[in-house]
Design a protein around this nucleic acid. Structure first.
Lengths: 239, 239
DNA sequence: ATCTTTGGTGCCAGAATTTGGCACCAATTC
DNA sequence: GAATTGGTGCCAAATTCTGGCACCAAAGAT
């Protein structure tokens, strides 16, 4: 067995059994007592918190808040991580203990700088309305990926966007708007935008939009204020 | 130099220089040509996309969308990742290529099952209204963490919550509500809730809430439907 | 006080893996 | 055809890992 695989096996076993002895681990993993002890030392060096009390019945115990299995992250996963961390940071350090910024900084450093900048700018534009439970997300989200390059351009460069919209009655109109936010309310995507012609905010279901086209050089600003009144503006969303 | 450290060094170098040759890498890293070639093979096996064209001037080029540096994640970081991935999955596979589910499954497996279940249930309750740009998040979010245990209990067990609320005019009232969502609009936190006494949805600024107290055994259901009309219900939030 | 259990360390020889050099092939440019 | 550069197979040397041994420390049982 590989040294890395053995480390993972040890962590898994500790997590599963809650409490074990070195000898049990040695038998389970198929390595000698000495090797297991060396491995535990290495894992501690890497940041795992492994309690041990010689003399008592069961010896080894892994701290549940301890660090996790190694994983090589794809760019999309790093993006997901940044997105999640943005939410976590916005939450102070809400439901759980504070974020380990050091590890995160390492990840950010590993990203190509231009990519990171783009990700951050896109994050600035992306509003997440509702996060569904993870279990239900497999069969969610219907939207044409072909639309996205135009939207990304409009969002990032903050220029107006032109497209055709088919409303609930099937009537098709031509719209030219200033995109303000992308709103995800699974299974649907909405574009929140300022419509200069109607002088009002509108939202558009993404699956009813076609032929999007950025309008060069028509720059605009984004608008956002927190609300004060205690009547819920989301009442239409809830039932 | 360690084999793992060398792999990281190679990836870093490829990312920084954009394009290099095997011999340059060998000299930079301090290893032989043969070893570098072996390492590149290993990195490719791990999922890195490394282009190469023998014969032409510069040979090696790392695909910018390729996988990232290894990182051991703390539990909070895994939570952040799950949160972000939930948003990403909800987005189909929005602005970037599809998520590498295999790696994610590995991370999920590494979490203690109870912890993962709790995280998922809490995710189900947490709505993120607006994600600020990462740069601005340091001085954001004013809310009393002391409030949270009561809210977490109410959300997770889906029971009513009682608290005192001080409105914009300073008038204090006693409320008993059914929490529906936590809304983060930096720098403020809002509780979106159904008020059975008023038979309507209300939202409350978290910093005006005090003395929260779960009301045992008064269970309720959550309510949510996507909206259809194209008039933006968020117009009060935007300016 | 002594024995047993169990974590922990130093040391060293044998086992396993990694490394570097070599010969050689393939594709491209000049 | 020569030069450049990625790529592969092979093997001996270098390096690292592993397992056994002796031994220490702490706690509980007798």
């Amino acid at each position: 067995m590989n040294i890395r695989a053995r480390h993972d096996a040890i962590v898994r076993s500790l997590r599963r059994n809650g409490m074990t002895t070195v000898d049990e681990l040695a038998e389970e993993v198929g390595a000698s007592r000495r090797t297991i002890l060396r491995d535990i030392g290495a894992l501690r060096d890497e940041g795992f918190v492994i309690h041990s009390e010689p003399g008592r019945g069961g010896g080894l115990l892994l701290d549940p808040g301890s660090v996790q299995t190694t994983a090589r992250l794809a760019v999309t996963e790093v993006f997901a991580l940044l997105l999640g961390v943005a939410a976590m940071r916005a939450a102070g350090n809400l439901p759980f203990s504070g974020l380990a910024d050091s590890g995160l900084a390492k990840i950010e450093k590993a990203l190509p700088p231009e990519k990171l900048r783009d990700l951050r700018r896109f994050l600035d534009c992306l509003h997440v309305g509702k996060l569904s439970p993870l279990q239900d997300l497999s069969n969610v989200g219907t939207m044409d990926p072909g639309l996205l390059p135009a939207f990304e351009t409009a969002f990032l460069q903050r220029i107006q966007l032109k497209f055709r919209y088919r409303d609930a009655k099937g009537v098709v109109t031509e719209r030219q708007i200033e995109p303000q936010a992308m709103l995800i309310l699974p299974p649907l995507w909405y574009l929140v935008a300022w419509d200069p012609a109607r002088e009002d905010f509108r939202h558009f279901r993404m699956d009813r939009i076609s032929h999007p086209e950025p309008v060069d050089s028509l720059k605009f600003r984004q608008r956002h204020v927190p609300f004060e009144d205690d009547v819920c503006p989301y009442r239409d969303l809830l039932r």
